[in-house]
Nucleic acid binder design. Structure first.
Lengths: 219, 219
DNA sequence: GAATGTGAAATCTTTCACAGCC
DNA sequence: GGCTGTGAAAGATTTCACATTC
């Protein structure tokens, strides 16, 4: 019974599962924390410590069974089942999301799509008939939707998030470039390539040299 | 001259800059760390501490000038210039990236696109003529490309990353679902919605109850 | 011999709390 | 009176190092 598992650890588990899947596809069936560390650019100690929060999965003197550890991680993460999702916002980005096969392949199934634009509702994209957002609550309930994907313009992001939360949705995958606000029992993951780039440029441009070092801000 | 700034701090700066831009668009010109904390779901102390790594941008008893702080952050992050990028992999995902206006709008310009498939090279997508990957090195040099976007299948991800690194690229935005390996002087940001979902499900499914608690792994 | 699992130490990050300034 | 900037304290995370097991 794990008492308090750090969130950073949870965030790493899918990466562990992914390299294990790759090792398995290569026919490798035992792996050491040393080798996993090399593949993940992490220390062997970190990997062992992370895994130790959940149980004892390895064999001393030998390492971890690739298939077994992968299955345990998938179990821990809740990946041995299908998760039902709905998309809100079927513009350019939303349409690309609907056409992307990667979610489905990994057990994340998009079963409904919503848009506020009446010109779009009723049309079919990626095999789904686009519904009006007015139908959100009803559909979330009847289809057992657990995760909402937000792909609307930033200006409408918060109202869509609020609507999803009002439907009882506990997980949101947010593609809109704004700061989401949710109650503490709702989980959000942001996908924002621009934000990712904007921290990378700090390193690419070299170290920051303050223009007026040690002086007080001049308004 | 900031001595050693934690990476977590750098990762938050773009979020600060983004809410400041939003506040500015609302005509608000002074903000306290308290209010920023509310907007970002962070503590006021964290915001003040983060900013203190780079200088003293506020006024006691008053707060921060929204426009001024935003400009300083953009300066620090290197956002007051255009960054030149190249895309590798012009499949469904790559095409969507090329058509997405958000990069351009934020000063990230894609000036070249590459694909290994001869059926695609020579065709035009999003205003760019797709080039053969054989031309990568030459084009990176002549166009001054600084950031590479990887949107190829996972199986070819590492070879594309290696090719970009060989061209002298120091920043990679990776959309392919695999574990990137790069030299320590190259910066990578991963965009992987499935990985994001896979850690969210841990929380959505409730706390992990080990199936055979305290027992040793049975192979 | 080899590699795990894990307390303890080291390091990193956040929060506190208050002097100093507007 | 209000709010910043910041050392110091508290808390979280990573790494060490070694007893233990295969």
């Amino acid at each position: 019974m794990p008492n308090e598992i750090p969130e950073v650890v949870i965030l790493r588990l899918p990466l562990y599962a992914r390299v294990l899947a790759q090792l398995e596809s290569q026919g490798i069936d035992v792996v050491s924390s040393q080798m996993l560390g090399d593949l993940l650019q992490a220390t062997p100690a970190q990997i062992r410590k992370d895994l130790s929060y959940f149980g004892r999965f390895g064999k001393q003197g030998r390492g971890y069974n690739v298939h077994y550890l992968q299955q345990e991680l998938r179990q821990i993460l809740g990946l041995n089942r299908t998760w039902i999702m709905a998309l809100v916002g079927v513009g350019q980005l939303g349409s690309a999301i609907l056409s992307y096969g990667g979610f489905q392949r990994q057990g994340f199934q998009i079963v409904a799509a919503f848009d506020a634009d009446p010109a779009r509702t009723g049309t079919t994209v990626g095999g789904l008939v686009i519904q009006s957002v007015a139908e959100l609550q009803e559909t979330v309930r009847t289809r057992g939707i657990e995760i909402g994907i937000v792909a609307v313009p930033a200006a409408h992001g918060q109202e869509v998030v609020d609507a999803l939360v009002a439907c009882g949705i506990k997980g949101i995958l947010n593609y809109a470039p704004f700061q989401v606000r949710v109650p503490r029992n709702v989980w959000v993951r942001d996908i924002d390539p621009v934000v990712a780039l904007q921290s990378m440029t700090y390193h690419l441009k070299g170290v920051y040299a303050p223009p007026r070092a040690m002086s007080v801000a001049v308004e």
